[in-house]
């Protein structure tokens, strides 16, 4: 089919752009870290630091070659795996080797990612359902009590930062009612094996994150539903004799929520890179905390590099998905 053909062409073209973009991002990251006035080779040096030791460290960390060479080795590692000087070996796809943790970065990421994914996905579902339903309720009761109540929620949600709402939830809900043993806070439970344990760990962090996002989505949904309700085609739907329920569900929401796909996709992609504050408060060892620790404590270049790359990959790929999804929702984009 012609349309299908065009779509495939479009996707492959966009994927190619994505790939080029990722290469540029990765090179940029290497140059930025090279330019920073911090020398990992010196940081890894003991008290009796001599130029010889620093030089040896530099060699060991693979920092004794040019920036482009370092980057090229990283790219090669992604496809062929890498072997390091002390005999460590990371099979493909290798994101490098953390000399700090004596582990391959791929393995570290594989451990942290399910935690971040759980958090992001749980929060995403919560804030979408909460935000959209509150927004619709507020729009339908414009100017009345429910609308005003939801605007209070919006105000609280948008003005309360997660580091406060998170701490409040931990102190006054999770610990006070003894829902989770403080020592087990943030422990990973595989949701397919131990759904209850997973829920105990993730419900409150997801709720913390969702609270902040839901407020924005409530406001967005409310204004879009109100705006769409005054469109001519809604008047037409009413003139046809459709019931208010069908008009809302089939005609208003379809048009009002289409733009949400874009922002929701990008918000979700952003969270997949790690929710630094929430992960921190609830002791979750996700990508966010991993990055922060690598930057502030251990200065673990391979980890910083990988998490940054991963985060930007999520955003770029999600952008592509959102664009394609939008074309499916709006026929005007598809074939005008």
């Amino acid at each position: 089919m012609k349309g299908c053909d065009r779509l495939l062409k479009y996707i492959s073209r966009r994927l190619l752009y994505t790939l080029v973009l990722m290469l540029i991002v990765s090179i940029a990251i290497y140059f930025i870290f090279d330019w920073l006035p911090i020398d990992p080779a010196r940081l890894n040096c003991t008290k009796q630091c001599t130029p010889d030791i620093i030089e040896a460290n530099r060699h060991r960390l693979g920092l004794d070659v040019s920036v482009m060479e370092q980057w090229w080795r990283f790219i090669q590692g992604l496809f062929h795996g890498r072997v390091y000087t002390q005999g460590a070996e990371c099979p493909a796809p290798s994101f490098g080797y953390s000399f700090n943790r004596h582990e391959c970065v791929t393995g570290i990421l594989a451990e942290a990612f399910p935690i971040t994914l759980s958090l992001a996905l749980g929060a995403f579902i919560m804030w979408l359902s909460l935000g959209i339903s509150l927004g619709v309720i507020a729009a339908k009761n414009k100017g009345k009590f429910l609308d005003k109540a939801s605007s209070v929620f919006v105000l609280v949600g948008t003005s309360l930062p997660t580091f406060i709402s998170g701490i409040l939830i931990v102190l006054f809900v999770v610990l006070k009612f003894n829902i989770v043993n403080p020592l087990e806070l943030g422990d990973w439970h595989n949701p397919f094996i131990d759904p209850v344990g997973w829920l105990k760990t993730f419900f409150f962090p997801c709720a913390t994150l969702a609270l902040a996002y839901a407020a924005t989505y409530t406001r967005f949904t409310r204004s879009n539903v109100i705006e769409t309700s005054s469109e001519d085609f809604i008047r037409t739907a009413r003139a046809k004799g459709l019931s208010e329920k069908v008009i809302l569900r089939k005609h208003t929401l379809r048009a009002a929520l289409a733009p949400i796909v874009t922002i929701a996709g990008l918000d979700f992609a952003g969270l997949l890179g790690g929710a630094i504050i929430t992960e921190g408060i609830f002791g979750l060892s996700g990508l966010g905390r991993l990055s922060v620790k690598a930057v502030t404590e251990t200065y673990d270049l391979p980890i910083i590099l990988s998490t940054t790359l991963l985060a930007s990959a999520f955003v770029v790929v999600m952008n592509l998905i959102v664009d394609i999804a939008y074309a499916f929702i709006d026929p005007r984009v598809r074939q005008s």
């Binding site: 469109e231 001519d232 003139a239 048009a255 709006d330």
Partner: peptide, 13 residues
């Protein structure tokens, strides 16, 4: 009833 602007009076999706 039919309206003045048939573009906006029909649902675009």
């Amino acid at each position: 009833m039919i309206f003045q602007d048939p573009m906006s009076a029909l649902h675009p999706y």
